[in-house]
Amino acid sequence: MTDIEWDGARVLARIRAATMAGLEVGAEHLLQVSSSLAPHEEGDLERSGEVSKDEDGLVVAVSFDRPYAARQHEDMTYRHDAGRKAKFLEEPMHGEKPTVLALIHQRARRELGET
Rank of each mutant, 00 (worst) to 15 (best):
M1R: 12
T2G: 05
T2N: 08
D3H: 08
I4T: 10
I4C: 07
E5C: 00
W6G: 02
W6Q: 06
D7L: 03
G8C: 10
G8A: 13
A9C: 09
A9W: 00
A9M: 03
R10A: 14
R10G: 14
R10I: 03
R10T: 15
R14M: 10
I15Q: 08
I15F: 13
A17V: 10
A18G: 00
T19Q: 14
T19G: 03
T19A: 14
A21F: 15
L23Q: 12
E24A: 15
V25T: 13
G26L: 00
G26K: 02
L30H: 05
L30R: 04
L31A: 11
L31W: 04
L31N: 00
L31F: 04
Q32E: 13
V33E: 15
S34W: 00
S36L: 01
A38Y: 08
P39E: 08
D44V: 03
D44H: 12
E46W: 01
E46H: 10
R47P: 12
S48E: 08
S48Y: 01
G49D: 05
E50Y: 07
V51F: 12
K53L: 10
E55A: 11
D56P: 00
D56T: 11
G57E: 15
L58I: 01
L58E: 11
V59P: 06
V59Y: 04
V60P: 11
A61K: 15
V62C: 06
S63F: 07
S63I: 11
F64Q: 10
D65M: 15
R66W: 07
P67V: 06
P67W: 07
Y68N: 13
Q72N: 02
Q72V: 01
E74M: 07
E74I: 00
E74V: 00
E74A: 11
D75R: 04
D75I: 00
D75M: 02
D75T: 00
T77W: 09
T77V: 05
Y78W: 05
Y78E: 14
R79L: 15
H80S: 04
H80E: 01
H80M: 06
A82Q: 14
A82E: 15
G83F: 08
G83I: 06
R84P: 06
A86P: 12
K87A: 04
K87M: 10
K87R: 12
F88Y: 13
F88L: 13
F88P: 05
L89V: 10
L89Y: 03
E90K: 06
E90I: 04
E90A: 14
E90N: 03
E91M: 07
E91K: 02
P92M: 06
P92G: 10
P92L: 03
M93R: 14
M93L: 13
G95L: 02
E96Y: 05
E96R: 11
E96W: 11
T99H: 04
T99C: 01
A102K: 13
L103N: 01
L103P: 02
I104V: 11
I104D: 01
Q106V: 06
R107C: 09
R107N: 12
A108N: 00
A108R: 00
R109V: 01
R109Q: 14
R109N: 11
R110G: 03
R110H: 14
L112D: 03
L112Y: 02
G113E: 07
E114D: 06
E114S: 02
E114T: 08
T115K: 13
T115N: 13
T115Q: 08
T115M: 14
